[in-house]
Every structure is written in structure tokens, then in C-alpha cells.
Design a protein around this nucleic acid. Structure first.
Lengths: 202, 202
DNA sequence: CCCGAATGGATACAGTCGTATCCTAACAAG
DNA sequence: CTTGTTAGGATACGACTGTATCCATTCGGG
């Protein structure tokens, strides 16, 4: 039955059209007709594959979360080869910051969704999963690193992780608003990782 | 000529009605008619005191910036009495985080404006002034503190300030989305100030 | 063959939006 | 007293919104 595949593929195309609009013109510019035009289909098709605008929006947020997750996992997997805890943190935090055009667009859309979620509980429910998972993952890693003697014993792993993630989020904001370049943000993160783990391996 | 006073007062009332809507229901819920209803006036009055919706939105952002500025200056002035650089930083960063109901509402509106500014250059121009001024102010302070021996000489004041402000912004996000409590955010900031300045004065 | 389901084009509907226009009052200056 | 400006009520206009309906295809299983 190839129908289901086509169906999912169509939905994926529409979701991507939605995210393209949201990341370049903002979430308030997203309308059924705009998505149809962006995807090159008729309004009816958009209605056909998504019952609601709400369903469409939630699909966009889910896709966005999946992309972030993919980026982080990919970078973390590469860095895990080095085995140094600092490398893992640099990779994960580096994956949060917008580092190329696509991740910058995704970060824009993510920010738009985050803001919408502040006044829309339905979106909030979908959006908090990923950040929490990340925080837990990194906390486990850092606690282990501390027991292995990689960071000083007077550090609090939970607070350190929360701080680093908040730092990365704040830096993402400043990069998106062009207050700071990507390189400057990376430098700030490295600076903090140096103080936590000691300077990067030579 | 009491007219000008009345005029400004009216504009202030309408701007506050706008911010009330933006902070509770989001910027996309802000319409001329909604503002009129919230302020208890007719649509014509809103049109009369603001030529455009754009003008109204910019007025809201300006007012929001003024409130933030007032909060920071007020806290900083109180803390400057103690004369310790750490106290100044704790006060300023504490003023950025939402610490009561009103500042939480303002932070919500600020976030909404920040996101809108990402895809609306007109708003971006109005909004970047305050963050830059804050960053410069704190950098000057921290550089002076370093020359006075209050922080270690191997610290980079510019990077430290940028990091602390990004941290405060990221923590604000997590507090607004109820991922973290205000107290937890304060604790994280204090933790970082401890590492920068040494533990708080007894 | 044919008939019901999947697919999608065209159009309609009831709201809401920002903005514009028309028409009163009130009041200050001549 | 008149006249012009400030202030605001009532209403209209065209554009756009999400959603619904009607209709024509296409196609696989009986």
C-alpha cells in the first residue's frame, strides 16, 4: 500500500513549506493559503492533509524538534569518538547555536514557536520535551565526568548544566538578532568550558 | 495649554492597554479593536491618537524599554550604595529576570517583541538600544573592578559580561516557560557571581 | 464493468483585520 | 455670534482569515 507513504510525504512537504514561511517571515505570516502557495499546491490540498491549522502548527513544531534532535545527536556521536567530556559539551552546545544558514532558519522558527507557546498551552506541551531531555542527558554526563575527576569537586553539575544551556539559549538570541556573530558566541562558550574543564586538549 | 498633557496621557493609557494584551495573550492578539476594548474607548479614539498600528506597536516597545531601564536603574542605584561590584551585578542581572508579576508580564511582552523584531526591521531598530547600553555599562564596571583587584586578572571582562547577560536572558526564557522557578534562576546567577567575584560578602 | 474511496480543484461563508469617511459635539479665538 | 480646531461616535470598505461544501477526477477490488 504506497498510499500511506505518499500521504506522509505530502505532509512532510507541507510542513517544510510552513517552516520556510515561519523562519523567514514569522509565524504570524503563516496562513493556509500561504502554505499552499509556498508548497505549490491548492488550498484544498493543505486542508486535505491537515484537518486544522492547529494540527499543521503542531506538526511544524514536532518537525523542528526532530531537526534539533538530529543535529545534536549527530554532533554528539561524532564527538563521543574523542571520549573527552569537554568535546561532548562543545559539540552539543555548538549544535544549539545557529552555525549555518539552515540551522539559523530553524532557530528563527524555534524562537517564533517558543514565543507562541508562552500564550498557547497546546504548543507548550509539544515544545518542552526536547529541552528537558537535553538537560537531563548533559547532567548525567557531567556528573559522571566529575566522578572521573574531569571537573573540580566543588562544581555543581546540575547548576553548571542549567547555566550552560541557558547561556547557549541567550547566545542564540543575540546571534539571531545580529547583536553578535556566531564566532563570538562560540568563543564565549569555549571560554566557559575552559573554566569548567580546563583548556581544550592540545 | 493642558491639551498636550491630556494627549500624552491618552497615548500612555492606550500603550498600557496594548502591553496588557501583548503580555497575556501575545502580540498576535493585539488589534486596534482589542486595544480599544481593553482601554474602554471606541475604535476611533485609538485611531485618533495613533495614526498607524505600526506607530502603536513602536510606542509599546519604547514604553517596555523604558520600564526595563527604570527597573535596572532603580536596583542599580540601591546596590551602588553598598559599593561592592558584585552587588551591582547581582542587582542588574536580578532586574533582568522576572521577579514579580508585573516584571513577568513585561518580560513576556518583551519576548513577543523580540521575536517580532526578528522578521520586522522597524521594530529591531527600536529594540537593540537597551541591551547594548547595558552591556557597555557592565563592561566598564567589570573592567574597573578588575583593575581594583576585585576579580582575577585572567578573566576577560567583555566576555564575562556578554556571558552573564546571555545567561540572564536564557534564564528569563526558562522562567517564563515555567521550566524553572525564579529562585532557581537566581541561584544559578549567584553561583556564577560567586565564581567570578568570590562568595557574597558575609 | 463499476462503484466506492482517495484525491484535489473551485468556490462560498462568516469573521476579523487595518484603515478611511462622515457626522456631531465642545470649546477657543476672532 | 461665528468660525475653526480638537475630540470622538458610527459606520463602511476591501482584504484576508480558517473552514466548509460542491464537484470532478483517478483508481483498485468486487
Amino acid at each position: 500500500m504506497p498510499r500511506q507513504v505518499d500521504h506522509d510525504e505530502r505532509r512532510r512537504q507541507l510542513t517544510e513549506a510552513l517552516l520556510r514561511i515561519a523562519s523567514t517571515r514569522g509565524l504570524q505570516a503563516v496562513s493556509m493559503r500561504e502554505i499552499a502557495a509556498e508548497a505549490g499546491v491548492s488550498l484544498r490540498v493543505v486542508q486535505y492533509y491537515f484537518t486544522n491549522k492547529q494540527a499543521l502548527l503542531e506538526s511544524g513544531l514536532t518537525e523542528l524538534g526532530a531537526r534539533m534532535d538530529r543535529r545534536v545527536k549527530q554532533r554528539a556521536a561524532v564527538a563521543a569518538g574523542e571520549l573527552t567530556p569537554r568535546g561532548v559539551f562543545a559539540a552539543v552546545l555548538g549544535a544549539i547555536l545557529p552555525f549555518d544558514e539552515q540551522s539559523k532558519l530553524d532557530s528563527m522558527a524555534w524562537t517564533a514557536y517558543y514565543t507562541a507557546a508562552l500564550t498557547d498551552p497546546a504548543l507548550a506541551a509539544v515544545g518542552v520535551t526536547l529541552p528537558n531531555a537535553l538537560e537531563n542527558f548533559l547532567t548525567v554526563r557531567l556528573t559522571a565526568a566529575q566522578q572521573a575527576g574531569d571537573i573540580a569537586p566543588d562544581r555543581d553539575p546540575r547548576i553548571e548544566v542549567a547555566g550552560l544551556l541557558a547561556l547557549a539559549n541567550g547566545l542564540t538570541s543575540s546571534v539571531l538578532s545580529r547583536q553578535r556573530s556566531h564566532e563570538a558566541a562560540i568563543k564565549i562558550i569555549d571560554y566557559h568550558l575552559d573554566r569548567l574543564f580546563g583548556p581544550a586538549a592540545a
